[in-house]
């Protein structure tokens, strides 16, 4: 059974098991490998994408759940004004270390700024607590969000 959804503004049809997590649909079926696998259990945030504008963990979101939905991944994140500002800010602050968590960080940060244009430290903590960074780039993540909001 083919399931249709919109990914980064393009209509896509995916043939496959509705129980397959969106993470693996993106990485394996749609060739969008920017979204990362870290834990497979909703614990690390590396797989964060937007579904209809909300940040979700794609490892915990099944293909069947996103039928007809609009999915945005890191590859399409800079299409919006907020996404552009976040990307520029991430580069200006040189946020990444190994870089592996950063797609997820950026997707969570973009969702935050879209909903809360001037986030407080507490807003940032609440929106970003689900995104682990093993390299501990948290100082710059916070700074980059603030700079992008300014």
């Amino acid at each position: 059974m083919a399931i249709s959804l919109t990914v980064n503004g393009k209509k896509r049809q995916v043939e496959g098991d509705p129980a397959k997590p969106l993470l693996w649909v993106l990485r394996e079926d749609l060739d969008l490998v920017g979204t990362k696998f870290g834990c497979g259990a909703g614990l690390c945030g590396a797989c964060t994408v937007h579904v209809d504008g909300q940040a979700v963990r794609s490892c915990q979101t099944l293909l069947g759940d996103v039928k007809g939905a609009a999915v945005t991944t890191i590859e399409g994140a800079a299409a919006t004004d907020v996404g552009k500002r976040i990307a520029a800010s991430w580069i200006a602050q040189d946020v990444p270390q190994c870089g592996y968590c950063q797609a997820g960080q950026i997707m969570s940060a973009t969702a935050l700024l879209s909903q809360t244009p001037k986030p407080t430290d507490e807003d940032i903590d609440a929106a970003m607590i689900g995104n682990l960074c093993r390299c501990s780039t948290y100082v710059r993540i916070r700074a980059a969000i603030k700079a992008a909001a300014a």
Binding site: T73, E75, A77, A78, W90, I91, P96
Partner: peptide, 10 residues
């Protein structure tokens, strides 16, 4: 970082 733009672009 030389790869930073590529990381940010996914």
């Amino acid at each position: 970082g030389v790869d930073t733009p590529a990381i940010v672009a996914g």
